[in-house]
Write a protein that binds this DNA or RNA. Structure first.
Lengths: 162, 162
DNA sequence: CAGAGATTGTTTATGAGTCAACAATTTATA
DNA sequence: TATAAATTGTTGACTCATAAACAATCTCTG
């Protein structure tokens, strides 16, 4: 199977390891949520709306999920087609919608959530609380350093003219 | 990778933290490789081929990258169009190709790699080697537990009829 | 050897993400 | 107040991922 040669650089290995772990978690959650015909991102949307009594605008959703505005459009279209949520015109901003769960959407989240928490515990249960706290604090730093390391490039013009 | 609000459960928080970190790393690497007009996955393909003197079959690539066969097709098409690699008929299996880097592909990888290693160090440099080793060993377990937790569902029929 | 079964790569359909550009609208400022 | 600047949601073009179904081919087994 493995065609990837070792690099004898433990930090390089850690990078790969982290990415693999997150891929495994993502895949697992994809399989998990397929029970309810949901993708992980769809679940996230529903969960956020469930916690927001007055709904959200799409821009708020995109910030909460750390994804681009344009991504939210399609995500909501698919969920709206299934009548799990709806877009209502905002009373105060005629550019925006307020996105709210339907009763069916709310029921679905309530049914799903306990299963989800059980699964999360199964995944992390072996790590001690102490280790878990360490991970939380270290990874914040790693994330920030990643953004930092790449900042010199991130505002450069894409590539002038093709 | 359900990235949802805090639940007053440290393990739950760790999950979110890990996923955020891996997202940050993935985004950073997307920005990083854009310098050479490469996506992260494209770079991975080139890197693997660079380490495989006799090339790979597409199936080998898909196993090394943990992605589906069908995904490799498009990935290679884009790279082949740019003459960074080519598909040669396999001498021993008429179903398969041997995918190999062109001279240009090889040059690109060699130019890129040192920058990449520098960046990886910038990201992980704050963590001690000891901590990095811990992470590597623990995350293997977390990944396995994630797969395990989800196994009951993973062989179930997709979903009969929508 | 014949045939059953597995594997290889492609296609098609779908989901999820990026970015850039746009019209409509709000907000801030000069 | 008029206008410049920022924000909102959509679209279109692109990348990257999955799954299912297919033809061609290899491999194993009776």
């Amino acid at each position: 199977m493995p065609v990837v040669k070792a690099e004898f650089n433990p930090r390089y290995e850690a990078l790969i390891c982290l990415l693999r772990a997150s891929e495994a978690l993502w895949n697992a959650s994809r399989i998990f949520f397929a029970q309810w015909r949901l993708g992980p991102s769809q679940f996230n949307v529903l969960k956020i709306l469930h916690d927001a009594p007055d709904g959200c605008t799409q821009a708020e959703l995109s910030r909460a999920l750390l994804v681009h505005r344009s991504n939210i459009t399609g995500l909501l279209n698919r969920l709206e087609k299934r009548k799990l949520l709806e877009r209502r015109d905002s009373k105060t901003d005629r550019r925006a919608y307020r996105v709210v769960l339907t009763a069916a959407g709310r029921r679905l989240v309530r049914r799903t959530l306990p299963h989800y928490h059980r699964a999360a515990l199964a995944v992390w249960g072996r790590l001690s609380e102490k280790r878990v706290r360490q991970i939380v604090s270290e990874f914040g730093q790693v994330s920030r350093d990643a953004e930092q390391a790449v900042r010199p490039f991130s505002n450069q013009p894409k590539h002038a003219r093709t």
